[in-house]
């Protein structure tokens, strides 16, 4: 009976994941391997293809008031602003997913805020790996593909923004998780009882223990030939914290040095006093 409960929990998380996130790993992998039957993503590999691509790739955030003024800014700044808007959308998606985790909305409200503040970037970089291969990353809901080399060719410090995420994604993707595994994994990340400033740790740890059991069973059933997958995945949580720390440091540097750039208020909230 306990196994049945854990399976039901994993199924529930997978259903919420499908409802909350716009582009799944299954769809992203189909696009990256040309198996969708739809047209291939527009490839952005240099400044010219970036300019051409803007006619083909629609950006949701273009409908946001105030974006018009961004068009006169440097390419690196414009790209960064689009990344930011995608991140803000991702925070909204992750919050919706978190609220669907059984027990989450029953936690102290301050603790819910803290769990999201510390968890969202770790979840963003776990799910971003689904959109990446060693050569580039899908953008704009899979309509475009931006190459890793192009991102590396941007001026400093923008060229340093994505490379650590590619390095992580190559290792993370080698675990070959699917969306049903990722759904439970990100619930485990969100329910981390060791985040600074939590008021009431015990109920969070209890929920996470349950999620960890669900994850272990999920991986055993879905990957019977990979006996150490659970342990390997838990190790990735340490790598994710390191990536987030470096990401936040880089963003704080950008905030100081790039005076043309505005950091979105939601991301400022999340980054303030983080690490």
């Amino acid at each position: 009976p306990e196994c049945a409960d854990l399976r039901a929990l994993a199924k529930h998380l997978y259903d919420s994941y499908l409802k909350s996130f716009s582009l799944t790993k299954a769809k992203a992998r189909a696009i990256l391997t040309g198996k969708t039957g739809e047209k291939a993503p527009f490839v952005i590999y240099d400044m010219n293809s970036l300019m051409t691509g803007q006619q083909f790739v629609s950006y949701k955030q273009n409908s946001v008031p105030g974006q018009g003024q961004e068009q006169n800014k440097e390419v690196e700044i414009q790209l960064f602003q689009r990344c930011q808007f995608r991140s803000v959308e991702a925070v909204r998606e992750i919050t919706e997913f978190a609220k669907s985790i059984p027990g989450f909305i029953g936690l102290d409200l301050n603790d819910q805020v803290t769990l999201l503040k510390y968890g969202v970037h770790e979840v963003i970089f776990s799910t971003l790996a689904s959109l990446m291969n060693k050569d580039g990353v899908l953008i704009s809901d899979g309509q475009g593909f931006m190459t890793r080399e192009f991102l590396k060719s941007l001026r400093k410090p923008f060229c340093e923004l994505m490379e650590p995420k590619f390095e992580f994604s190559v290792k993370f993707n080698s675990l070959e998780l699917d969306d049903s595994d990722l759904a439970v994994f990100i619930a485990v990340i969100i329910l981390s009882g060791d985040r600074p400033g939590l008021v009431n740790v015990k109920p969070i740890e209890d929920l996470q223990d349950n999620m960890l059991q669900a994850l272990e069973l999920q991986l055993k059933m879905n990957h019977p030939d990979a006996p150490h997958l659970f342990a390997k995945l838990l190790q990735k949580m340490t790598d994710l914290r390191q990536i987030v720390t470096e990401h936040v440091q880089l963003l704080q540097l950008l905030k100081k040095t790039e005076l043309e750039m505005n950091i979105h208020p939601l991301l400022q909230e999340i980054m303030k006093d983080l690490y």
Binding site: V88, L109, V113, T114, K117, L266, I270
Partner: peptide, 21 residues
Amino acid sequence: LKEKHKILHRLLQNSSSPVDL
């Protein structure tokens, strides 16, 4: 915490309403 994280707080309290940017 609520004062310092108004947007996060709003996202948690409101059901999938668009974020006021």
